[in-house]
């Protein structure tokens, strides 16, 4: 009984790490630009495919592949910002329009990937082979790497926004664009940096996920939808609340799988979310937008 519970918690931790990486990327773009990027999951997928091409098809090794995937996701993210988000800054309906344009970007990326890489399932080798046992629960070393890397990356992003001048300038732009430009911050550059950073994070996550799950054109959809639940729970406004909610959702999901089985879990999760929203319209942790 205890063993099952520990195994469940550990698998919840793996899920939570994945969701935390996804959701914090969404949060960075949201807090800086006020844009919800629907193509975030697709950026993950692009990175996984590029990583596969570089490391498997070209045989340049997994680390080079992961780096190439991360960079390409960042590049695509910056292009999306420039072409699909920037033209609508200041528009009265910017929030809604950018939801639609980034949704269109998602379709374009997924279908392009299908055309370029085909429908056959692909997978990356693991960065570290072998298995690791945590309190008696066994997971692959690669998953353990994801679990260990996630908090480090989250802390790195947090420290970046709190300590570094560039990170602080992103926060300033997110809170008041006009005042930010009056102290000499280039607002459009800040937007590009935020989008690029968020996309790079999605890219790294995607490349790492490519060793655990199959790489398909729609591999980003499911994590995106889960990350959406996370931001509904945690709000989008603060990195800490978003990351916290991600781990909570990951563990709840693992427990639900244990109790209700794989089929009922997503349904129960969505139902729980809607019930929560009726009572807390800004999410459990989210005080304000």
């Amino acid at each position: 009984m205890i063993d099952t519970l520990i195994a469940t918690l550990v698998s919840g931790l793996v899920l939570g790490s994945l969701y935390a990486l996804m959701a914090s990327g969404l949060s960075v773009v949201w807090t800086t630009l006020g844009v919800f990027n629907f193509s975030h999951g697709a950026l993950m997928m692009v990175s996984a495919f590029v990583a596969w091409t570089v490391s498997e098809a070209l045989g340049l090794g997994l680390l080079v592949g992961i780096a190439a995937g991360t960079l390409s996701a960042a590049l695509v993210g910056i292009i999306i910002e420039r072409l699909l988000v920037r033209p609508f800054y200041g528009d009265r309906n910017m929030l809604l329009i950018t939801v639609m344009t980034t949704l269109a970007a998602m379709i374009i990326l997924e279908k392009s990937a299908l055309i370029i890489w085909g429908a056959r399932l692909k997978q990356l080798p693991r960065l570290i082979e072998g298995e690791i046992s945590i309190f008696g629960a066994t997971i692959s070393a690669h998953e353990a790497l994801l679990v260990a890397l996630a908090p480090l990356l989250l802390i790195a992003i947090w420290q970046f926004t709190v300590r570094s001048t560039v990170g602080r300038s992103l926060r300033a732009v997110g809170q008041n664009q006009e005042s930010a430009s009056l102290i000499g911050i280039d607002v459009s550059k800040a937007f590009a940096i935020a989008f690029g950073l968020s996309a790079a994070l999605a890219g790294l996550t995607g490349a790492l996920l490519g060793s655990i799950r199959f790489i398909t054109p729609t591999m980003g959809s499911e994590p995106l939808v889960k990350a959406m639940i996370v931001v509904i729970f945690g709000g989008l406004g603060s990195l800490g609340a978003t990351a916290g909610a991600a781990y909570v959702i990951g563990i709840i999901e693992a427990l639900l799988i244990l109790w209700l089985g794989l089929y009922w879990t997503p349904f129960a999760l969505f139902l729980l979310m809607i019930v929560v929203l009726v009572f807390r319209p800004n999410g459990i942790f989210g005080g304000r937008e």
């Binding site: 949201w30 919800f36 929030l95 809604l96 939801v99 939808v225 959406m228 639940i229 931001v231 509904i232 989008l236 969505f270 979310m273 809607i274 929203l277 319209p281 800004n282």
Partner: peptide, 9 residues
């Protein structure tokens, strides 16, 4: 945005 997210969900 929460309307978008919830209706979508």
């Amino acid at each position: 945005i929460y309307v978008v997210l919830v209706t979508f969900a």
